[in-house]
């Protein structure tokens, strides 16, 4: 079971400001640094740290801090899916080729399948489940629903996260910029035209919300 140790809301709030979404800020910042409470993690000195075998680390995911046991080889995707029950990010290729496992790491879209969990201990990780803090949909999610920007939906979480990151960086993208921004996500059903429409609609909604 994940242990909720505390949460951090600041970066989250800043992030959502640009998105025309109302969120409740419930969090109190509980100190930044996270030291793994591990038996085998050793801080040899200030300059070198080694981790081997199974160790407990803390991960900040969707504003909650989780304590999980991992090995150095455990990927972020495995932790999210197998330990935290966050199955939004998908293991479709597991090699960084399809974008279905896209998550935000310190606000940047990255591929959870190609990140070691021990490597993102200091990061703020947001998965598709954490884009909205309540049950309402974000502007991007709402637009994907209304424009039908999906078919089987297996790649959808990756697209939604990538589109969210794209609009955060470029609130008014051209069609060509939308294509560029989503060029790291594959959809075998090929719902692309409706996905583009969804991103365009989300951009308009978010512009109005400002």
């Amino acid at each position: 079971m994940p242990v909720k140790k505390g949460s951090s809301g600041i970066s989250r709030r800043d992030f959502l400001k640009g998105m025309g979404t109302t969120i409740l800020s419930t969090a109190v910042v509980t100190g930044g640094g996270l030291v793994p409470d591990s038996a085998t993690a050793a801080l040899l000195d200030d300059t070198v740290e080694t981790i081997s075998g199974r160790v407990k680390i803390s991960l900040r995911v969707n504003h909650k801090v989780y304590s999980v046991a991992v090995e150095p080889r455990t990927t972020l995707l495995e932790v999210l899916r197998e330990r935290l029950g966050l199955t939004g990010a998908k293991p479709a290729c597991n090699r960084g080729e399809c974008g279905a496992c896209t998550v935000l790491v310190d606000n940047q879209p990255m591929l959870a399948c190609s990140l070691l969990a021990v490597d993102v201990r200091d990061a703020d990780i947001i998965t598709v489940e954490g884009l909205s803090t309540d049950d309402t949909l974000t502007a991007v999610q709402k637009a994907f629903v209304e424009k039908d920007g999906l078919m089987c939906g297996f790649c959808t979480p990756g697209f939604v996260v990538a589109a969210t990151a794209l609009l955060q960086k470029n609130p008014n993208p051209s069609l060509s910029e939308i294509k560029q921004g989503l060029s790291g996500n594959l959809c075998r059903c090929a719902a692309y035209p409706k996905i583009f429409e969804a991103v365009q609609q989300a951009a308009r909604t978010m512009q109005r919300g400002k």
């Binding site: 200030d46 300059t47 070198v48 740290e49 080694t50 981790i51 081997s52 075998g53 090995e71 150095p72 080889r73 070691l116 021990v118």
Partner: peptide, 15 residues
């Protein structure tokens, strides 16, 4: 992936 030791080096000279 096979098990490995993860070494986080923070100073270039130690690398």
């Amino acid at each position: 992936m096979f098990p490995f030791e993860y070494i986080n080096v923070r100073e270039l000279t130690a690398l």
